[in-house]
Amino acid sequence: MNTALILVLALVLDAAMGEPRWLWQRLPHPAVLMGRLIGWADRRFNEGPARQAKGLITLLGLMAAAGLVGGLLSLFGAVVEIAVAAILLAQRSLVDHVAAVARGLRMSLQQGRRDVAMIVSRDTGAMDTSAVARSAIESAAENLSDGVVAPAFWFLVGGLPGMLVYKVVNTADSMIGYRTPRHEAFGWAAARMDDVLNWIPARLTAVLIALPAGLLGDWSAIRADARLHRSPNAGWPEAAMGRAIAVALAGPRAYDGVMQSFPWVNPQGKRVLTPADIDAAIARLWQAWGIMLALAVLAGLF
């Protein structure tokens, strides 16, 4: 069975099963294992002089280990590859988490805040309904790229080794790739490598969102909005999503008690948001997934 058809089955399995709680209550999830390893490396090597060099060597070691594990797992055949790839994809999990915010908001603003706090790092305690919905939609767009399109892309490029290398880099970036006194030097390599590995998938995600919305003709506007984002990649799916569901995204938000003024993405879109707008974003997630699945089928057949 070729790589594309293995990906097709993994995408379907992930969409159907998600992350079974009964399984991950008994076994550590691969992402958890990666996180433990990265946390150990951070505690062990992120000290003393030459932290940037130590961070680079650590990242290269993590990537080599991930590639080796992926290669070894591939030796067990297509069934193992399908299962592992499905575990490392996150379409169903993403949809479930974002849908929980919409359900929470329909119950109460407080519940919506609690649910969105599970998927974003910004301050949520003072959010109004629009801010909660906007945060969930932005997370949906960005995580479609990081959690679904990018791992699928790197699986097509390099099989399980490629997928695992991407996942360990992305996990490292989420843990140590911050411009803080502790991690600015040590996590520099992880942040830059994550930017490199997400460059194509982020733009591909924007295409997958824009295509079913009939927005490819607005690509120049999507590109202009994407460049407003502080990340070289995250702005692309966010810009496409904002236009696909006709809402304004980004804008001011607070981190660690400090309000930060970010520019609006799709500023002409509506700014008073409701749970229905989250529902619209979820529909776009499934449309993008469906197109990606169809492309993988075509790649597998031809």
Rank of each mutant, 00 (worst) to 15 (best):
Q111C: 09
Q110H: 02
G104C: 12
I87P: 03
V32A: 12
A83Y: 07
L62F: 09
I38E: 02
L89Q: 01
S93K: 05
G77T: 01
E19G: 05
A10N: 04
G71N: 02
V84S: 04
A16H: 12
V101P: 11
A50N: 06
Q110N: 07
L109I: 03
A78E: 12
L59G: 05
L37A: 13
R21T: 15
A100N: 08
G18W: 00
L68E: 10
A83V: 03
S74L: 03
R26K: 14
Q111N: 12
A31C: 08
Q111T: 14
A16T: 15
L7G: 04
M34P: 07
L73Y: 10
L13W: 14
G35M: 09
L60P: 08
L105M: 15
I38F: 06
I82P: 02
I38V: 09
V84H: 11
A85C: 02
P30V: 13
A31M: 15
V8W: 00
A85R: 03
R106D: 07
W22H: 13
H97D: 07
N46C: 09
R103D: 15
F76L: 05
L59Q: 13
L109M: 11
R103P: 10
V12I: 12
V80W: 14
W24A: 12
A83K: 06
M17D: 07
L9D: 15
A64N: 06
R92S: 08
Q91L: 11
A10R: 01
V101I: 09
G61Y: 02
R26A: 15
A41I: 08
N46E: 06
G77F: 04
M34H: 02
I38R: 05
R44K: 08
L68I: 14
A31N: 04
W40F: 03
F45R: 04
W24T: 03
L7I: 05
L72P: 03
P28A: 04
S108I: 11
A65S: 07
M63G: 13
L75V: 09
I87A: 05
Q111M: 15
A64C: 03
G39E: 05
A86Y: 06
L94E: 01
Q91P: 08
A102R: 01
